[in-house]
Computed example of a mutant assay.
Amino acid sequence: MRRRTALKVPFLLAGGVSIIPTPRAAAAGRGPWSADRAQSWYRAQRRPLGVNYIPSNAINQLEMFQPDTYSPQRIHAELAMAGRMGLNTVRVFLHDLLWTQDRHGFTRRLMQFVSIAASHAIKPLFVFFDSCWDPHPRLGPQHAPVPGVHNSGWVQSPGADRLGDPRYVSVLNEYVTGVLNQFRNDDRVLGWDLWNEPDNPASTYRAVERRDKADLVAALLPQVFQWARAVDPVQPLTSGVWQGSWADPRHRSEIAGIQLDNSDVVSFHSYAKPADFEGRIAELAPLQRPILCTEYLARSLGSSVEEILPIAKRHDVGAYNWGLVAGKTQTYLPWDSWDRPQPEPPRVWFSDLLRLDGRAYQDGEIAAIRRLSPLARAR
């Protein structure tokens, strides 16, 4: 996704009990796993190789999981394609409004999704919150894709209308802990990505973005780690860094510091060329924790399957490209299609691996995935 500072703003629960922001470096209470525990967990997994997944008939997280548009048969078919090419994990975005809409129905659908994924030997990495794209999510029918525009319907969680509402903090807490408690001992789930690019200002929506968003997120993010940590799941927690410098703690942004200091497993995003991608791994390696690249693949920018995956394998880094089947998100279009819509698919796709009919966009990419998959020897 396209990406692109920070005070001490207290939040109040509905009953008037304050949640005072903890020091930004680490959330209060139970701390992150030790590096040894994280490495032991990683050794027990197959190296994660996957995609950021949304069904081709869904424009965003809401359409993926709302009861009227949830499509288990399509999910089954598309994850079967992923499994056949050697993928063993998918990164999947959730949304707080799905919890408020119908928590019991939502968790049933989540349980079914996990079962479908497991039938294809795929473990989900679930994402709770997201600071990218439209800051005004709405339940119900979602709009049609904007012709020629990359990711024209993706929505933030929580949205701008609820991010600064002190009465809603308890709902967010219930959402995180409710979902986590459902799966806290379930080894079919790989892990929990608590917040996608929390410091992304969603510049595409600058006219309607909150000016105090970064301050509010910086106050809330340590609390989200604290809520999740209190559940004590068997799966690790993470939140991926994506911009700035990470090697020296003194030079990290405030939010990047929160992410790295509280994550059990380190994760990052890079849509850069291979040398820069490898440099990002080098920045994070001194933390001595397992590393996941939870977003890559921007072909026109030099981030390709054939060049990125060998680097990830050499460094034992998990990797998730953006997109499986090209569909309503239209992420085969480049980011700049927001400024210059492209009515026809480009000759060089930006992201996504498969066409709607299941054929590969590039056969060589699928061959590379199969060759570099941790499942290759098992075949």
Rank of each mutant, 00 (worst) to 15 (best):
R3E: 07
R3P: 04
R4H: 11
P10Q: 07
P23G: 01
A25L: 08
A26G: 07
G31D: 03
A35I: 07
A35V: 11
R37K: 15
A38V: 09
W41G: 01
Y42M: 04
Q45A: 03
G50F: 00
V51Y: 00
Y53Q: 01
A58R: 07
E63S: 09
E63P: 06
P67M: 01
D68C: 02
Y70M: 10
M85L: 15
T89E: 02
V90N: 05
D96L: 07
W99E: 12
T100Y: 10
D102L: 13
R108N: 15
R109Q: 15
Q112L: 15
Q112R: 15
V114L: 09
I116W: 14
P124V: 08
F126G: 02
D130M: 04
S131Y: 06
P135W: 04
L139M: 15
G140W: 12
H143C: 06
H143N: 12
N151K: 04
P158S: 07
G159Y: 09
G164W: 05
V169N: 00
L172R: 02
L172C: 02
L172S: 02
N173T: 00
N181S: 11
D186V: 01
L190Y: 09
W192E: 01
E197F: 06
N200H: 05
A207D: 13
A207C: 00
R210C: 07
D212H: 06
L216T: 05
A218E: 15
Q223A: 12
F225H: 09
G240W: 00
R252P: 11
S253F: 10
E254T: 14
I255N: 05
Q259M: 15
Q259F: 13
D264P: 09
V265T: 12
V266P: 03
F268P: 01
H269W: 05
H269C: 00
D276L: 13
A282P: 04
A282D: 14
T294N: 06
V305F: 03
L309I: 07
A312V: 04
V325N: 05
G327C: 08
Q330D: 05
D336R: 08
P345H: 08
D352H: 14
L354W: 13
R355K: 14
Q362W: 12
I369R: 02
R370F: 06
L372D: 01
L372M: 08
P374D: 03
P374Q: 05
P374Y: 01
L375R: 04
A376D: 10
A376I: 03
R379K: 07
